[in-house]
């Protein structure tokens, strides 16, 4: 598969770059540019990673940037790293940038991401669709999810079309739900959250695309269990209408870097490529902001202070090797 080839090539480049990093060299004093996107876990993680770099004596700078634009930016070096690349929503942009050249793979977090259609817990509690979270339940409860513009069918609220193209419409068709359900694309993540809140106040059913870890976890969100994913099940990957009803894979959460980063900041790069967060860790970072209402920078400080045993080894091992 084309995607796999690209992945392999990128890993190879990353490995070579990593090797060259073992050559003894000090980090450049120029700041490492870390992107600030518009969701909590990403921003806190940006500050956490920035804090780690700073603890190693590097300078950092935070650059606000649109998520989709960040991949073009990292490719040409306007930002140095991307640290939270979600498979299902960002792999297109990620591999596009890699193919054009300039972006290297800097490893994968331990966290497995879950991005899937789901419902807030109260939808289940209210019994609006008995049988959830099994997808088969959707066959009989479409009316409860209808909206004025859905023509009487139930509405699936998918994220912007730029996230997965036609995956969701194909899935609806593949599962044979298309006579009862219709897919609507929201324009941005905040539109999804607004819908979530509005639906709750109104007490009507809603089914939206969502992911975890996310700030919505706090109020309870249940993902629907679709037929299991396997490579090539989707139409776009060569699958058939019979298989395209598959759910989302357990996604990877990747890191990427500008290709010069290993050469300009070998130590920081080593730390960055070793650095890995688990789902609960990312969740705890986001919760400091979303639940405890801290600022992103304060949350990062607190997280770093509370979790030294987790992140110190990444830096120490680098310094140890270097010295």
């Amino acid at each position: 598969m084309k995607g796999m080839k690209k992945l392999a090539a990128a890993v190879a480049v990353g490995a070579i770059a990593g090797l060259s990093g073992t050559v003894f060299a000090a980090d450049s004093s120029e700041p490492i540019k870390i992107p600030i996107k518009n969701w909590s876990s990403q921003i806190v993680m940006a500050h956490v990673i920035g804090g780690i770099f700073e603890s190693m004596g590097d300078k950092v700078e935070y650059v606000p940037v649109d998520n989709q634009a960040s991949f073009e930016a990292v490719r040409v070096g306007d930002i140095t790293i991307v640290h939270e690349v979600w498979q299902s929503t960002m792999q297109n942009a990620y591999y596009n940038a890699m193919e054009k050249g300039g972006l290297i793979d800097a490893g994968t977090h331990a966290a497995e991401t879950l991005e899937e259609m789901g419902v807030p817990n109260w939808v289940i509690e209210k019994g609006l669709c008995p049988g959830l979270p099994k997808w088969e339940a959707l066959k009989d409860c479409a009316e409860a999810f209808a909206t004025p513009d859905s023509g009487g069918k139930g509405r699936w609220l998918e994220g912007p079309q730029s996230w997965h193209g036609d995956v969701m419409p194909n899935r609806v068709k593949g599962l044979g739900l298309d006579d009862k359900w219709v897919v609507k694309f929201a324009g941005a993540a905040d539109a999804l959250w607004a819908e979530l809140q509005a639906a709750e106040k109104e007490g009507r059913g809603t089914i939206i695309f969502n992911w975890s870890p996310n700030f919505t976890d706090a109020s309870g969100f249940t993902f629907i269990e679709f037929p299991p994913y396997f490579d090539g099940c989707r139409i776009a990957d060569g699958g058939s209408w019979e298989t395209t009803g598959c759910g989302s894979p357990k996604g990877w959460l990747k890191k990427g870097a500008f290709w010069k980063f290993p050469k300009t900041h070998p130590n920081a790069y080593r730390a960055f490529s070793q650095l890995t967060f688990t789902t609960p860790q990312i969740g705890s970072m986001a919760a400091l902001v979303d639940v405890d209402k801290m600022t992103h920078a304060d949350a990062a400080k607190k997280w770093l202070a509370d979790n030294e045993e987790i992140w110190k080894p990444w830096t120490v091992s680098v310094l140890g090797e270097g010295n």
Binding site: D66, Q68, A69, F71, E72, N92, A93, N96, E99, K100, P160, Q161, S162, K184, F185, A186, G187, A188, D190, A191
Partner: peptide
């Protein structure tokens, strides 16, 4: 700008263009 709410018009295409290689 309504593309950010969710439309299927030119705006949505423009929004989508940001992540495309021919953007």
């Amino acid at each position: 700008i309504g593309a950010f709410i969710g439309t299927i018009d030119l705006g949505q295409m423009i929004l989508k263009a940001i992540s495309e290689s021919r953007g």
